[in-house]
Design a protein around this nucleic acid. Structure first.
Length: 281
DNA sequence: AGTAGAACCTGAAAGC
DNA sequence: TGCTTTCAGGTTCTAC
């Protein structure tokens, strides 16, 4: 489900329930997600106040006043539901429990945060905040695409000599952290690059042009997510999903928005890529 | 070293 | 209607 923009939208949606609030009760309905939950997780959470909510790539970090941070990844199907607070001008009532509600946090102030994940590819862990960068899940991540460490010269250098398709390179979280299958297709469409092209064989000029495209695509999606929070009509408290008009993703056989050619779908390393065979070379 | 593919899970949708 | 197959927005592990 979630790539960087969706995770950022989830983070923002969690703020009113979590930031500055105390975790009064943590209910763990199973001992593991993708991996076992950390030792004594409920005890380490209960009584702690959430000082800040941050995002690193597709991870959410809740900094606690205990010196630890709760690390959250939504995997493919992970969903966050907030209730008991105001969101987008609506008061969100507590929903009935659902199948796959794995972790429920009862917050001071009446807020509730429910982590639901059918496929259980998601994860949670507790890490010392001051040693967070060394955490095994975060240590290998490349730069934030919206941060200062990501720029034209970095990407040119990283892609140099690579035989892998540009699609796979942009999906590689060690090169750039936060893009997923949807936004890679969208980025390559806007940059006019064929997803099958070998990363190291794209001219430096075209690689450089990718950088602002990546930023624009992500920022537009974050903005769309922000709108969904402001104009939350369903008021069901589910965060991170929002209507966003994709130009190529999931549009196989539909006309290209630029030239009308039918969008193609191919499989690369087991995953769908969508592109316009006329606009992308 | 670098890359492609399988594996981890469940559920929704499409196909027959 | 019901059974089977395919596919899903992520990441790690294994095998070439």
């Amino acid at each position: 489900m979630p790539e960087l923009p969706e995770v950022e939208t989830v983070r923002r949606g969690l703020l009113p329930a979590m930031e500055g609030a105390r975790i009064e009760q943590a209910v763990l309905n199973r001992p593991d997600l993708r991996w076992p939950l950390p030792e004594r997780m409920a005890e380490r959470l209960e009584g702690a106040t959430v000082e800040r909510l941050r995002r690193r790539s597709k991870y959410i970090l809740a900094d606690l006043d205990t010196g630890e941070s709760l690390l959250i990844h939504l995997g493919m199907s992970g969903r966050m539901l907030v209730s008991g607070v105001m969101l987008g001008g609506f008061h969100l009532d507590h929903p009935a429990p659902q199948k796959h509600d794995h972790v429920v946090l009862h917050m001071s102030g009446g807020g509730r945060v429910t982590f639901n994940d059918a496929r259980r590819f998601g994860a949670m862990d507790l890490v010392r905040t001051d040693r967070e960068a060394a955490h095994w899940l975060l240590a290998g991540l490349g730069p934030e695409p919206l941060g200062n460490m990501f720029d034209e010269s970095y990407l040119i250098e990283k892609l140099r000599g690579r035989a892998t398709p540009i699609k796979a390179a942009l999906l590689d979280q060690r090169i750039i952290a936060g893009l997923g299958n949807i936004y890679v297709s969208e980025v390559l469409f806007r940059a006019g690059i064929d997803p099958r092209r070998q990363a190291g064989r794209i001219s430096a000029k075209r690689v450089a042009a990718l950088v602002p495209v990546i930023r624009t695509v992500l920022l537009e999606a974050i903005e769309a997510g922000g709108s969904s929070l402001r104009d939350h009509r369903q008021a069901d408290g589910e965060l991170g999903y929002f209507q966003h008009a994709f130009r190529v993703y999931d549009r196989e056989d539909e006309p290209c928005v630029t030239c009308g050619t039918a969008i193609r779908r191919i499989v690369q390393s087991g995953r769908s890529s969508f592109f316009c065979p006329s606009c992308q070379k």
